[in-house]
Nucleic acid binder design. Structure first.
Length: 931
RNA sequence: AGGCGGGUAGCUCAGCGGUAGAGCGCUGGCCUUACAAGCCGGAUGUCGCAGGUUCAAGCCCUGUCCCGCCUACCA
């Protein structure tokens, strides 16, 4: 073991073990009939085929891997179902960009050749994220990986479509939809992101037609989008608005197109107090106006082409872009004297989630899914607790969305995706088909059929993911065993996009919920709480933290177009902690990053990723490594049997007892989706208890203990270490495997720690007495050390130590453990143990802990001034505490109505404080002695 | 506009009815033969503001001010 380097090197270790796990099929899920293990399954949220691992993935993948590894170790038959999403728009855009570089367009290529080209791209450069997940240590059953465009999933998608169509839940309709003029496709409501921006509220006048003897001959409207007036088919006023009562039923003259438009009254659309109280109505390009148009049978005029330029309806403005048209219309209005001013106005700009282009509402014929009948069961399932959402606060958001859901526009004007399985004959009859090509129109028998050119929204196939990946619509063993899946873990941002739709689809097609629990995590943001984004230059590549990277390289990736210095400055502003990190990130390894991800509370909506934290957990990995290295030097011949060894020595009994708390806290944390609690419990157990106390106390035993004591301690050390590594494995798979393979293990352990049993309470032994006794011992030691430290006595200068206790039991315990005290305090010989009272030796500083008086003979080393300062400071504090406690106890209501243990605790504390105070007062006498 | 979440140590956050916690940072002392990526100590908070409930309140209630996020048709 001495050949092991002094520092842990994840870069060397991690790839080695990942290969080992793959070689030994450690992640394999079984669907065989004979396998009686209970099932546990998670469907991996399939990353986009264009995707590359970002912090959000790292977070989700880590959480899922911890859940999965934990259950696997607990003996479940675990399926973590991997896969990749074809990501319609995203992928098509990537390949189109590639074509553009070659000077080609997809239209030139033609549909079939283009789709072929996408497949080629996918084969060459798609799914690189899989390799990145492997770096992280993720343990899905890779051979089961699915792609949403695989033949079997195409079959599932068609099956779902056909059934919904036949049930009347999918229909085709012409209505106002969201249109991205850049992607040139329809979008669903959830694919539109509203962004607040500064605009203006612009006012202009329509002239009233005909005679106008009884009032002003114009009507002034306010709008944020003047150019849409080209599609206006009415102006609405409130029926009760006295200002415009005389205009009811009159017509207005459109200044640019040959059209007269009516003045209508509408109490729903119009808010009298806003703007001018008169609203221009553009049913073809505004959702409110569309609804108003339906109420008043108004014409819906589409003034836009699919690329966002104005069409012939726009008369003289034809061919302009929306933005150009806005300027031109305003100018033209001004020229005609119709402009009536403007003021700044905040508005919500709808943008395409894929390309950020401003989305235009326009009239179009699309396919829709009727949502209400599907939403109801999904609401009920959560209300009844058949699916649990964690953190629970998201339940409300889920309910709100499903209670207000609109029909889902599922057709996309793209080429890459699942083409809609509907065929039209020349008469326009619809024939829906599970086959690639039906023989004849099912209405008229005509055989000349053409397929609908549109493809389905990517999320349509994603919605089927929990069962399509398991072989649906066939009745497969996988489906029988793993559906409903156990947990669905994902970011809250796709609660609507994905989770809600899986719930609806799963309930509809499978008759049962797709998962028992939904676990939502927050969004990873930079250290200052800002969203990560290319523009901000604050994106962090998880793999840079794993492998290490120079900051210069990091910022060149996150802001490729900015000068390095500028990018670096932005980067450091986003991550203040890196300013202390020199020139770059150290290679922290996947384990450190994983542990960091686990340490954030799941209820946080924003997870401010701190590189310093990753660094901290890198040190933790190193700590585990070195503790093991130390242990190995004593454990070569040690055998353990997996049961907690019998122990007589206090510190051995104590660590076995503490082990139970740690292990149970970890399991509870994982089970309750509180990985922060679970990981933190193990962190503190391993570092603060196992290393700082147990391992330290083992040293005097290994140096001078009896053969029995050494043997007991060896077995305890080996057992606790083996158990602790197993407990840590889900969080830190690599370092635990590396070390576990080198330490003594009980007979019968499997080939990998990943398959070894997760520790339970029976791996330790609760011993409340030992914990109490140890607490006293540690308290006394800390008190003595504090005295030393406060007087700047270096460890190389031994001090005489005297401990006094009233209880015979405590004295006995101190005596039994005096060699540990001697070692840990560096006292000169064993401490003297005595009863209470008696003279305080000259030159001794007194302290106390848990009722034990701690006297440290400094023999002239004490600095009177320093000591006086310390005493004054502590007296002040103690007096304050005593005051609080006395007041509390003086209150009869407290002593009568508070639980007895609380009162007793308060009394005990007051006692302790009083003794402490007495020692401080004594200390003042000491100063007098010394001065 | 509504809904949700948050305002706790310099920073990032945990705690949610019994004398305020962690990590990082700061600070004093140590190269004590597992680890200086370490060890032993220390300091630091009117727990957003104002009321209320309670013997007891970051923790419960009411109001209020900020800050995020989501939903929504104020043209």
């Amino acid at each position: 073991m001495s050949e092991l380097p002094k520092a842990y090197e994840p870069a060397e270790v991690e790839p080695r073990w990942y290969k080992f796990w793959l070689d030994h099929d450690v992640f394999h899920a079984s669907a065989e009939a004979g396998d009686a293990r209970p099932a546990y399954s998670i469907a991996l949220p399939p990353p986009n085929v264009t995707g590359s691992l970002h912090m959000g993935h790292a977070l989700g993948d880590t959480i899922e891997d911890v859940l999965v590894r934990h259950k696997r170790m607990q003996g479940y038959n675990v399926l973590w179902q991997p896969g990749i999403d074809h990501a319609g728009i995203a992928t098509q855009l990537v390949v189109e960009r590639q074509l553009k570089r070659e000077g080609k367009t997809r239209q030139e290529l033609g549909r079939a050749a283009f789709v072929e080209r996408v497949w080629t791209w996918k084969a060459q450069s798609g799914g690189r994220i899989v390799e990145q997940m492997k770096v992280l240590g993720c343990s899905p059953d890779w051979p089961r990986s699915k792609f949403t465009m695989d033949a079997e999933l195409v079959r599932a998608v068609r099956e779902a479509f056909v059934r919904l169509y036949q049930e009347g839940l999918i229909y085709r309709a012409t209505r106002l939809i969201n249109w991205c003029t850049s992607c040139q496709t329809a979008l669903s409501d959830v694919e539109v992101e509203n962004e607040e921006s500064n605009g203006e509220l612009y006012e202009f006048a329509y002239t009233v037609s005909g005679a106008s003897s009884d009032g002003p001959n114009e009507l002034v409207v306010a709008t944020t989008r003047p150019e849409t007036m080209l599609g206006d088919t009415a102006v609405a006023v409130h029926p009760d608005d006295p200002r415009y009562a005389h205009l009811h039923g009159k017509m207005l003259r459109h200044p640019f197109v040959d059209r007269e438009i009516p003045i209508i009254t509408d109490a729903i659309l119009v808010d009298m107090s806003f703007g001018t109280g008169a609203v221009k109505v553009t049913p073809g390009h505004d959702f409110n106006d569309f609804a108003t148009g339906k109420r008043h049978q108004l014409r819906e005029i589409n003034i836009l082409n699919i690329d966002g330029t104005l069409n012939a309806e726009a008369a003289e403005f034809k061919g302009l872009t929306v933005k150009q048209a806005r300027g031109a219309v305003k100018k033209a209005l001004a020229e005609r004297g119709l402009e009536r001013g403007s003021k700044p106005h905040k508005l919500q700009l709808p943008r395409c989630t894929r390309c950020s282009t401003v989305v235009e509402p326009l009239i179009s014929t699309q396919w829709f899914v009727k949502m209400e009948p599907l939403a109801k069961p999904a609401l009920e399932a959560v209300a009844q607790g058949r699916t649990q959402i964690l953190p629970e606060e998201w339940k409300k958001t889920y309910d709100h969305f499903l209670n207000n859901i609109q029909d889902w526009c599922i057709s996309r004007q793209l080429w890459w995706g699942h083409q809609i399985p509907v065929f039209y004959c020349e008469d326009g009859h619809q024939t829906v088909s599970r086959e690639d090509r039906p023989r004849a129109c099912e209405h008229c028998g005509k055989t000349e059929l053409s397929q609908d050119p549109d493809v389905l929204d990517t999320w349509f196939s994603s919605g089927l993911w929990p069962f399509s990946t398991l072989g649906w619509p066939d009745k497969t063993p996988e489906l029988a065993r793993f559906y409903p899946t156990s947990d669905m873990e994902t970011g809250y941002d796709i609660l609507f996009f994905w989770v809600a739709r899986m719930m609806m689809m799963g309930l509809h097609f499978m008759g049962d919920v797709p998962f028992r629990r939904v676990l939502l995590h927050g969004m990873v943001v930079d250290e200052t709480g800002d969203k990560m984004g290319k523009l901000k230059g604050n994106t962090l590549d998880p793999l840079d933290l794993v492998h290490g990277a120079e900051f210069k390289a990091v910022v060149q990736k996150s802001m490729p177009d900015a000068p390095v210095e500028e990018a670096l400055a932005k980067f450091k502003r986003a991550y203040p902690s890196v300013t202390q990190m020199g020139q770059g990130f150290a290679a922290s390894g996947a384990d450190s990053l994983r542990f960091t991800m686990c340490s954030y509370s799941p209820q946080a909506k924003r997870i401010a990723l701190s590189p310093a934290r990753v660094e901290g957990y890198r040190k933790f990995c190193n700590k585990i490594y070195n503790a093991t290295r130390f242990s190995l030097s004593y454990l070569a011949e040690t055998r353990i049997d997996g049961r907690p060894p019998e122990a007589k020595l206090l510190f051995n009994k104590w660590i076995l007892s503490r082990l139970v708390s740690a292990v149970e806290a970890s399991t509870r944390g994982i089970d309750e989706y509180r990985l922060d609690d679970g990981s933190s419990a193990l962190y503190h157990f391993f570092w603060d208890e196992f290393c700082d106390w147990f391992v330290e106390m083992s040293k005097p035993i290994f140096a001078n203990g009896s053969a029995d004591e050494q043997s007991e301690t060896r077995r305890t050390l080996a057992h606790v270490l083996e158990t602790a590594l197993r407990a840590l494995h889900p969080y830190l798979p690599f370092v635990t495997e590396e070390l576990w393979q080198r330490i003594p293990r009980p007979a019968g352990r499997p080939i990998s720690i990943a398959l070894a049993p997760y520790p339970t309470r029976t791996d330790g032994r609760i011993d409340a007495d030992a914990e109490r006794e140890m607490d006293l011992l540690m308290g006394a030691i800390v008190a003595a050390r504090t005295v030393r430290s406060e007087h700047d006595i270096p460890p190389s200068t031994p001090v005489l130590l005297e401990l006094r206790a009233g209880s015979a039991g405590v004295r006995e315990s101190l005596l039994a453990n005096s060699r540990f005290i001697e070692f840990l305090v560096r006292s000169e010989g064993a401490p003297r143990i005595a009863g209470p009272g008696g003279e305080r030796p000259r030159g001794a500083v007194a302290s106390s802990a848990g009722g034990i008086e701690v006297l440290v003979h400094l023999r002239g080393l004490v600095d009177p001034a320093k000591e006086k300062e310390r005493i004054d400071r502590q007296l002040k504090k103690v007096d304050k505490d005593i005051d609080v406690m006395k007041k509390r106890l003086a209150n009869s209501k407290f002593t009568e109505s508070a639980p007895p243990e609380v009162v007793a605790e308060a009394r005990a504390q007051l006692d302790t404080l009083s003794t402490k105070r007495q020692h401080l007062v004594d200390g003042e006498a000491l100063i007098a002695e010394l001065s």
